[in-house]
Amino acid sequence: MRLEPVADASPSRLVGYPALALAATLAVTASLVMIAGADPLAVFGQVIKGAAGSQFALLETLTRATPLIFTGLAIAVAFRARLWNIGAEAQLYMGAVATVLLGTGALPLPAPILIPILMAAAMLAGALLLLGPALMKMRFGVDEVVTTLLLNFIVLLFVSYLLEGPLKDPMGMGWPQSPRVIAEAQLPRLIQGKRLHFGFVLAIASAVIVWFIMAKTTLGYRMRAVGHNAQAARFAGIPVNRVLAMTALLSGGLAALGGFSEVAGLKGNLTLDLSAGYGMTGIVVAMLALLNPLGVVVSAIFVAGIFVGADAMSRSAGVPSYIADVMVATALLTMVAAIMLTRHRIRWR
């Protein structure tokens, strides 16, 4: 068996293979569901219902998608320039820390002033956190995969220290949690009484802005050039290191906005379970979107939908919600295969 490139991918390829990928995902998960002793059709039905079957379900999916859009964008931006940021989780937490530091009363300002300041502070914290590994990569050739990955643990332990010490809520009955941010620091809910908050709007706006940067600006052009061929970019006079530094700042800042949005929009305070692995899931989201910033919105909602839907399903069908992880992982693998197949033809001998 071998692969031959095809010059022009026909529309039937472009639609057919992703459809096949979806079918393969369903087939794999269906067989697992059957092993668990449940009816696959019923389970899928409940996943879909749980993800989008009601206003509550839909809003819950969008709420869950919000941090994934931010981390997905952070990864998409970094990977596009071949800066392998595996530390979106850490940057998200640093954004949350900055939000809590300044948002719990340190700055008694009205919301229209305070919220932009908090966003800027969060972005700065995340940006600087990624700038370090980026500089070490440029100066000493230290692999950023290792440094950003390890920073996740360092930052999580740092947050744990903060929550047991300086940032501990005196009214928290001993729980490791920070005080709540003041009312002026909170993002408004989009619908009264529901959990979906203004952070979702910020996430969509960020996706549009990132798309604009990548497609229309010299910075985005340079980032793509550096990512595709750093040597040719340098030859063409593009300051590769400066571009990588800018990429790090942008990527870290985006992930940190996710932390800001979770604290200021949803949770109100910082705890150690602020992120349900959003940094790592952001990698899946970005890859599924082929690193396209607008695609990140779609894939974040898709991934969030599976998680939310599977949660609901597991409550009623008795199939563990881990099936969501399997579905997302299988979807990623089959989509990667499908994307390759749209561009290549298989020859069986």
Binding site: H228, Q231, A236, G237
Partner: peptide, 15 residues
């Protein structure tokens, strides 16, 4: 060094 193979002609000529 000369070209960025995965970018298009327009993107390459203005590099």
């Amino acid at each position: 060094t000369g070209m960025i193979a995965d970018m298009n002609v327009t993107e390459n000529v203005i590099s």
